[in-house]
């Protein structure tokens, strides 16, 4: 009895997503069309992929505020490489590498300088954005090879290519989180870092790895963003970190660490994606969208806390 209702509450985000989907299907004739649904997928892919990395970071008890800036930096680096070399793949690799480097730097500073991740990534948020603007002089990178548009806009059969990218990434992160040492240690570190150290776990090394993976995924998301815009925008990704963190939190991730799942995060990201898409379709003032998403974050966490309190002892 108690287990069932606990389970029910745990599945609440999932049911909310389904309910939202059904409501929108009824409310708008345009919602349940292939064009609209694939546009939802394309629009949310960037946040979704970043949120996968953020899930690792948050489960480990950390936070990364710099992902929006890293998105811009990686996008600019990737597109510059692409324009310079003419190779799409090389450009994507460069973008992912740029993300990796900043993620690694975040992790390294957090562990070696022993500064809280909030502060370190607040710092890199500024540093990385600044460097991006310096490198580009504030101007977008243009003249990308047109094949690059496939990543963000292409389709394989009926499915948007980004959906496949997202599913593959999600599957990898899901398996990593549940069935590898990295994942197990991520939960252990997030639940009680000191106990993890006392268990002989090389905590510092794993934390660096977690931030580096988050950076890589942000790099990949950056290349999807550039593919959709077909430019490398130095101002891309402003305030994305908030949406990304919101997706993880709505999906059951705990900012105190030790809790969160890939599936939850995906549900969280899609809830936000559907809300924004639904508001567009139903003609809701976009200014209201932000307010609604804000309210949903608070509601989701309040429900989750209530569940935990009720089933704690």
């Amino acid at each position: 009895m108690k287990l069932q209702s606990g389970m029910l509450q745990r599945l609440l985000p999932f049911f909310s997503l389904i309910a939202l989907f059904l409501i929108l299907s009824i409310a708008s004739p345009y919602f349940l069309t292939a064009t609209n649904l694939s546009s939802v997928v394309r629009q949310t892919a960037v946040i979704n992929i970043m949120a996968l990395g953020m899930t690792l970071v948050i489960v480990a008890g950390g936070i990364d505020l710099s992902v929006g800036s890293i998105l811009a930096f990686a996008g600019v680096m990737g597109t510059m490489t692409m324009v310079g070399s003419g190779s799409v793949l090389l450009g994507i690799a460069a973008g992912v590498l740029a993300g990796f480097v900043w993620g690694f730097a975040n992790g390294f500073m957090i562990t070696s300088l022993k500064i809280p991740p909030f502060i370190v990534t607040l710092g890199t948020l500024g540093i990385v954005r600044g460097l991006t603007l310096v490198v580009t002089d504030g101007l977008p990178v243009v003249g990308l090879p047109k094949e690059h548009s496939f990543l963000g806009e292409g389709t394989v059969g009926p499915a948007p290519f980004v959906l496949i990218v997202l599913v593959v990434c999600a599957a990898i992160v899901h398996v990593a989180l549940h069935s590898t040492k990295l994942g197990r240690y991520t939960y252990a570190i997030g639940s009680n870092e000191e106990a993890a150290v006392y268990a002989g776990i090389p905590v510092g090394r794993y934390k660096i790895a977690i931030y580096a993976i988050s950076g890589m995924l942000t790099g990949l998301a950056a290349m999807i963003e550039t593919s959709r815009l077909m430019t490398g925008q130095p101002t891309a990704g402003v305030a994305y970190e908030l949406q990304v963190i919101a997706a993880v939190v709505i999906g059951g991730g705990s900012l105190t660490g030790g809790e969160g799942t890939v599936i939850g995060t995906l549900i969280g990201a899609f809830i936000m994606g559907l809300l924004s898409n639904g508001s567009d379709l139903l003609g809701v003032n976009p200014y209201w969208q932000q307010a609604i998403i804000g309210a949903i974050i608070i509601m989701a966490v309040a429900l989750d806390e209530a569940r935990k309190r009720r089933f704690a002892t």
């Binding site: 197990r184 939960y187 252990a188 639940s191 009680n192 993890a196 150290v197 776990i201 030790g258």
Partner: peptide, 24 residues
């Protein structure tokens, strides 16, 4: 509580925490 256990993880995760290699 402070240094011995990850209190919010399951019992089983705590037991294998220091020796994951053995079950990997």
């Amino acid at each position: 509580q402070q240094t011995g256990l990850a209190l919010d993880l399951p019992i089983c995760a705590n037991i294998v925490m220091a020796h994951l290699d053995a079950i990997c």
